[in-house]
């Protein structure tokens, strides 16, 4: 019986700091695909049985299958008010698509996170 897992992750990020301007912008993203499952097993049955043993294993590949797609996207914008003070806004979007819910149910979900504040140095 074979078990195979695959994971592929792509990421990209960038940051812009315009010269002479108070703005700074950054963005980063990651896209990940993961999956795993058993192949249909070649099951060894006992040579002799105590009772009926007409087991059906055809559903194992489906039941064992895990498949997720995950996105993480974050962006931050900050602006300087002065040499020692700045403000920021940050957004993060985290999304999971469960394409093969089984043992733990459908784990599909997403979270949008917002941060904002001011910063000062001394």
């Amino acid at each position: 019986m074979d078990y195979e897992t695959k994971a592929t992750s792509l990421h990209a990020s960038g940051e812009i700091v315009p010269e002479g301007r108070p703005w700074r912008v950054s963005i980063a993203g990651t896209l990940t695909f993961t999956e795993g499952s058993f192949d249909a097993p070649d099951v060894e049955l006992p040579e002799e049985t105590v009772a009926i043993a007409d087991y059906d294993f055809s559903a194992i590949p489906e039941y064992s299958r895990l498949k997720y797609r995950q996105i993480e996207l974050t962006s931050r914008v900050s602006r300087s008010f002065s040499r020692d003070a700045s403000g920021y806004v940050e957004l993060g979007w985290y999304d999971l698509q469960d394409d093969s819910p089984w043992v733990y149910g459908d784990e599909t979900g997403s979270v949008l996170v917002t941060r904002a504040g001011v910063q000062t140095s001394f």
Binding site: Y68, Q70, Y94, D95, L96, D98, Y104, G105, D106, E107, T108, G109, S110, V111, L112, V113, T114, R115
Partner: peptide, 12 residues
């Protein structure tokens, strides 16, 4: 810090 949730978030 604030968040908006949709669906199941324990895994993501």
């Amino acid at each position: 810090y604030g968040a908006s949730l949709d669906g199941v978030t324990g895994r993501v």
